[in-house]
Simulated assay, not measured.
Amino acid sequence: MSAHHASRLFISLTGLDDTDGEELEQLTIALRERLLELDVDSAEIARREGPAPANTKSGEAFAAGTLLVGAGVPILRGMFDLLKSWIENRPVRTIKVSLGNDSIELQAAPRAEQKQLVDAFIARNEALSLTPTDPISTRDETEV
């Protein structure tokens, strides 16, 4: 992976209507573990900004449902295959993936439709990764 510039992706899970905060937290932790089995550079639960929501432990500083993933464009296909499988087999309504100013939201949709959306997202970001730029300035410009 080190031969490719790693990008920072934000992955946000939205649970079903009856999914509580604790279950969403467990789903986020489990997804992080699965992502780490892929060749990603990192996968961390995002830190929450601002005061803790009601009914949470005062020491909780993480945002359940949101991951920060460091990965190069070549790993995106495998990551999306994992996410598509994840949404079909878990109590998750949507998974939103953001890379810079580009984002895609996966939901339980027909596979052909999801494949077209994912292919377009990957193609856009492959084109961006092939454009010669200063990695430091690109990282600053694309942060969400």
Rank of each mutant, 00 (worst) to 15 (best):
T14M: 12
E113V: 15
T131L: 14
Q107H: 11
N55E: 10
N101H: 07
L67S: 05
D18Q: 09
I122S: 05
S42N: 05
A43G: 06
A61L: 07
A71Q: 07
L24G: 03
G50Q: 09
I11E: 06
P51T: 02
S2A: 10
N89Q: 10
R47N: 11
A46C: 07
D81L: 13
R8N: 12
E23C: 08
L13D: 06
T14C: 13
D134V: 04
Q114P: 03
H4I: 02
F62Y: 04
A112S: 14
D17I: 13
P132D: 04
I11K: 11
T133W: 03
A63P: 00
E126L: 08
G100V: 00
S42F: 11
P135V: 01
T66R: 13
E49R: 12
A63S: 14
E22P: 02
V144R: 11
I122K: 12
A63I: 02
T14H: 11
D102R: 14
E60K: 14
E44F: 04
I87D: 08
A6I: 03
L13G: 02
G70Q: 13
P53K: 07
E141G: 11
S103D: 13
T56W: 00
D81I: 09
R34S: 08
A61R: 10
G15Y: 07
I75W: 02
L99V: 00
R48A: 12
T94V: 04
D81P: 02
S58T: 06
E49N: 08
V40G: 04
E113L: 13
E44R: 12
D119P: 02
R48C: 04
L76F: 13
